[in-house]
Design a protein around this nucleic acid. Structure first.
Lengths: 240, 240
DNA sequence: CGTTAAATTGAGGTCGTTCAAACTCAGTGG
DNA sequence: CCACTGAGTTTGAACGACCTCAATTTAACG
């Protein structure tokens, strides 16, 4: 599924997202070996799949630019959105040692990816304690922070938690400002949050009316982060 | 926090839950080395903590008998129930390489545990490819199946998903029958599911009226697993 | 500019919550 | 052995939040 359009690769050493990636804290020969096994950089066009449910696992991926949607089709044929991915995120972690991918992932805009060959990477894990430590840390974080949606059925809390979650992740990637870009549709957001899309829309505009955010099509400017955080609080994640 | 009451240990080789545990597929010297580092078997009395939020991580645990509740206290001081654990489950995985535990875990009845020393275990992971493979598989499964509660706000679906989840896990542990024992209170269940405890109670009795289950105090007999599964379907987990 | 998907808004109905009260049951002490 | 206690469970009634359905407006894109 990886398109045959290979770009000049950015060496892990110079990658601006290495602090989020599996290469974190690696130096010298360690980093060199990791960099050598990674196929970089692939472009996936808007709407194209990186991989699909039940496809066999040969790579996991690091997102370098763009945005992706993870979903699966349930027994009733409905699409269930499971996650969105942003630059610096690792994609496919939950399926790392599986035969087949459990989810499908597609690009929501033109997206650049590094492909990490599963078997080669697993070999490196066995040889390099620092890499193993980093890999386990990343999977630990995924267990803890992936499911940020509050279990409570309160819709305002869910939408606020979504905005805060995206905002916090974006902040780790570039200089802090109050802006987030959401390439996904409100349908996708409502699907992820388990709400009606009308509800998501109404709450976004309610937040705007209350001067918590400012909506400009797919761009959202957060004007009162503290209030948003208070609404999102008592989510089902421990304090980050 | 581990009580000073050590029992005669069951060798991993003879443990009836090894197919669920990190020892799976290990043989000979590998298994011997793993067995040697594990402190077994501790008893935690009903209501006592195995560990608490923010306590430093020295061990992770394998549950041998009993039942545990995982929870955390949010910013508003509310208890948020995150998970229940049953025999064969590994406890503390998400905090494996953290300084401090992110959750608290306590026993809901008298419980037997194996304590796996974190640092010794990490060393073994570096030395043994089979153990590493197994460990990653277990964490992969946790990412995929830990958050089984449907994102939808439909209460019947949530309660059904809860029953099916417990039932499925119990089935992997002993001979299949239609019986599950729930030592936790309905308050705890409702907290985990994000529902009012009255709602959980009403739905359980609704299921009973519809002959899907039979309630006898904390014991539940599942009399129509297919209907329950249909109600629980389209959950936010891919098909198991 | 035309077409289509996405976003927006309104109204009504449903389901889960909230609040209040009664009941059950295990544990305790008289 | 029985009354007392308190946590947990059960039941009812009213309210309110979110969903559903329908219609309209706006944005996206060739």
């Amino acid at each position: 599924m990886v398109k045959d359009r290979k770009l000049v690769g950015v060496h892990c050493k110079f990658c601006i997202y290495s602090h989020l990636c599996i290469s974190r804290n690696l130096v010298g020969e360690e980093l060199e070996k990791l960099n050598n096994i990674i196929n970089k950089m692939f472009i996936i066009e808007n709407g194209s799949h990186i991989y699909r449910q039940n496809q066999s696992v040969k790579y996991i991926y690091a997102l370098y630019s763009g945005c992706c949607k993870e979903y699966f089709i349930d027994k009733n044929g409905n699409e269930i959105v499971n996650n969105f991915y942003f630059p610096g995120d690792i994609i496919g972690l939950e399926s790392f040692l599986s035969k087949k991918f459990n989810y499908s992932v597609l690009a929501l805009k033109s997206t650049q990816l590094c492909a990490i060959p599963r078997d080669d990477f697993f070999k490196l894990l066995n040889e390099n304690e620092n890499l193993l430590r980093r890999f386990i840390k990343v999977t630990n974080k995924k267990i803890k922070y992936d499911h940020f949606i509050p279990v409570t059925t309160n819709a305002k809390r869910r939408v606020a938690a979504f905005l805060i979650n995206i905002f916090t992740r974006i902040q780790k990637r570039k200089e802090t400002n109050n802006h987030i870009h959401l390439p996904m549709s409100q349908f996708d957001i409502s699907n992820l949050l388990g709400l009606a899309h009308e509800t998501v829309n109404r709450i976004l505009h309610l937040f705007q009316k209350e001067n918590l955010i400012r909506i400009l099509n797919k761009d959202i400017y957060i004007t009162n982060i503290e209030s948003l955080k208070n609404i999102a609080d008592s989510s089902n994640s421990p304090v980050i």
